[in-house]
Amino acid sequence: MSARELEPQELAEVITTVAGVTVTARSLTDPPTRTFADLGLDSLALLGVVAELSRRYGIPSRAEALECRTPRDLMAFVNDEIRSGV
């Protein structure tokens, strides 16, 4: 597993490519309470985003990742998984 952490810029790129919703790194967490739904992502879109992140980082607890409601929560969750895997 990679020791590299998931940064907002990379998540923004994944969302733009996988979900077809153009977002900036800043818009993901400003305000910090911004949800995926606010950004126009439904549950299928989130499924695609998490699958792509899993391919890049390996996320053992994908079902839990899918419960994240905000980009901020998802980044924290993924980075926890990355650190615990090191």
């Binding site: 077809g20 153009t22 126009g40 299928l44 879109a45």
Partner: peptide
């Protein structure tokens, strides 16, 4: 169409 629709 919107990009969100095109990917799906």
């Amino acid at each position: 169409l919107e990009g969100r629709i095109i990917v799906q």
